[in-house]
């Protein structure tokens, strides 16, 4: 279908623009350096080297992904409008919705590439360390859990980039998009804990009110629950998340991202480029 051809073409040039951006090189180099130093840090610990290795590796990958999302990806969106390169796209038979989808898939393809590269490198490092020490130190280590954690990380960035697209469609500057996206990320990571606290301790301690509960519930509905994607602690101890949980999470990611893209394309339809 022509529409798909167009979207794929836009995904392609978005991907190329991103890959050739020097900021990406910088992030990749930093991430690789961090992975290399993880080998040193792991040796500082006593027993659970497997746990430490997984913690360090997964945290590096997440961190690199955050840098990529908040700096390179947001820039790709805002640059298009600031530098007027969006005219190259909109002067072709693209609908605003196709533009949004094409850019989003371009951002995602950048994420997948980066995470794949870092997974391979970190996996190699873990393999290397695992084979150079006694089995006892990696007794809770599991490749399956490691892979599952990577999958969860990728799902989180699928959703976070949809958030980025959404805020890019509203805001007029890269700074505002970064601000709102980072704020959403932080709230999204914390909301589950806060809600848990409110529904548990606060009720028993007596400082909960109907209004507070309503507020918390609305927040949980609107804000993405990013902490559901964080299974680093489980993975580092070789604990696998259930298939049901994984499937539920995938469903949640898809629907929420689709909703965000839907809103983004409608907002974007209303925008004018002068």
């Amino acid at each position: 279908m022509k529409s798909i051809r167009r979207i794929v073409a836009l995904t392609h040039i978005t991907f190329i623009e991103g890959i050739r951006d020097r900021a990406l090189y910088g992030i990749t180099i930093v991430a690789l350096m961090m992975l290399a130093t993880n080998i040193l840090f792991t040796n500082l610990f006593g027993h659970e080297l497997g746990k430490i290795m997984v913690d360090l590796n997964l945290s590096t990958i997440s961190f690199a992904g955050l840098l990529l999302t908040f700096f390179v990806n947001i820039n790709l969106m805002s640059k298009d409008i600031d530098r007027q390169t969006i005219y190259c796209v909109l002067s072709k038979p693209f609908s605003r919705g196709e533009y949004i989808v094409g850019k989003y898939l371009g951002l995602l393809s950048l994420m997948i590439t980066a995470i794949f590269l870092l997974t391979v490198c970190s996996g190699g490092i873990a393999w290397f360390v695992k084979n150079s020490v006694a089995d006892y130190f990696f007794r809770t280590f599991s490749w399956t859990c490691y892979a599952q954690a990577i999958l969860y990380i990728m799902l989180m960035f699928t959703m976070l980039n949809a958030v980025v697209i959404f805020f890019s469609s509203i805001s007029t500057s890269a700074f505002l998009t970064v601000l709102f996206s980072v704020a959403t990320y932080i709230v999204g990571q914390s909301i589950e804990e806060v809600a848990f606290f409110f529904k548990g301790e606060a009720v028993t301690a007596g400082y909960s009110s109907k209004f507070n509960e309503f507020l918390i519930d609305s927040f949980q509905y609107v804000v993405p629950n990013f902490s559901a994607f964080d299974i680093k602690t489980m993975a580092s101890h070789g604990k696998l998340m259930s298939m049901n949980h994984t499937i539920a999470l995938i469903g949640y990611t898809v629907i929420y991202s689709l909703l965000l893209l839907f809103f983004a394309s409608h907002i974007f339809k209303r925008r004018e480029f002068n």
Partner: peptide, 10 residues
């Protein structure tokens, strides 16, 4: 610690 609780504990 957001999503870096394991790392923070280390």
């Amino acid at each position: 610690a957001l999503e870096f609780k394991g790392l923070t504990s280390d």
